[in-house]
């Protein structure tokens, strides 16, 4: 079944979580869908002409306009009476979503057109060689936020896209993770059952950009969740309706030490200060979303 919508034989790196996530999304959503794909890894590694991995209608236009392209497709489906049966999905990476595509995504969300936007978040511009994006986490060493004698990597925080989408009154906002395939597929199905504009951000670890071995992709995704750095939650009409609980809190070190993009933080005083800040971010997420089961039992 998986091969029907998203065929193997593409040119993704081994251990690429984005290819895994895309396959899961299509398994959950297909076959009555049209996919609009922003420029990025997913577009490049699946469609080197004359080959294609896509078993559903698929279009790529440009980097920053996937939300508008999807809006046009959705309007055309309404015009010719297909909109009840066929759903539109827009795919973008973190840069295509939170940076260059932010305007067109905001437009789509404001119009509330019946489109599911999926952000494949690998936390940097991986397709062009690991440059910093608005979704690169603080402390991340990228080619344009390099760690050096006077820098600890990315100085700024990670843009809170789910909150921004919720502020647009998106009918459904969720985070997902390729290491939790059943949860991911359920969220895709749930989103497609709801009207209006929906947003799902999937964390997709990248062995090349995060600098860990490809075999550890599932582990990296799990640790992002288990440390509280990438909480899994759902929001409907701006309100959190469901979170994935954690059995225990893991130290952010378990996650960060796996990846050499954070290795420099363990080598300087400034880095150690940054590590403390990253732990605070995780703690605040756990608090904000009520992620720990035992804390709930106490309350």
């Amino acid at each position: 079944m998986s091969n029907q919508f998203f065929a193997p034989g593409h040119t993704a790196c081994s251990g690429c979580a984005q290819s895994l996530a895309a396959r899961l999304v299509l398994e959950a959503a297909g076959p009555e869908i049209i996919v609009a794909n922003a420029t990025g890894c997913l577009e490049v590694f699946t469609t080197r002409a004359p080959q294609s991995s896509w078993g559903v209608p698929w279009i790529h236009s440009l980097f920053e306009n996937v939300s508008a392209v999807a809006s046009g497709i959705e309007a055309a489906l309404r015009a010719d009476g297909r909109s009840e049966k066929v759903k539109v999905l827009a795919f973008g990476g973190d840069g295509g979503t939170a940076d260059i595509g932010m305007g067109s995504l905001s437009g789509l969300m404001e119009r509330g057109q019946d489109v599911l936007y999926v952000c494949y978040d690998n936390e940097a511009y991986m397709n062009t060689g690991i440059q910093r994006s608005g979704l690169t986490p603080p402390g991340g060493n990228t080619t344009t936020s390099p760690a050096g004698k006077k820098s600890i990597g990315k100085l700024e925080g990670k843009k809170d896209m789910p909150a921004i989408m919720a502020a647009h009154k998106a009918s459904y906002v969720a985070t997902a993770n390729a290491s939790y395939p059943q949860d991911l597929k359920r969220k895709i199905k749930k989103a497609l059952s709801l009207p209006g504009a929906k947003y799902i951000q999937i964390l997709v670890p990248c062995p090349l950009g995060w600098r860990y071995e490809g075999k550890d992709t599932i582990l990296a995704g799990k640790l992002a969740v288990e440390t509280g750095l990438f909480p899994l939650f759902e929001m409907e009409n701006g309100v959190v309706t469901k979170v994935m609980k954690l059995k225990e809190k893991k130290s952010v070190d378990d996650y960060l030490k796996l990846q050499r993009r954070f290795a420099h933080l363990y080598k300087s005083e400034a880095g150690k200060e940054e590590l403390a800040k990253i732990q605070t971010i995780a703690d605040q997420n756990i608090e904000k979303f009520g992620l720990l089961e035992k804390e709930e039992a106490k309350a």
């Binding site: 609009a36 279009i59 306009n65 392209v69 999807a70 046009g72 309007a75 055309a76 015009a79």
Partner: peptide, 10 residues
Amino acid sequence: SAVLGSQAAG
């Protein structure tokens, strides 16, 4: 971009 999408959708 929107009319690109709508034209592509027929």
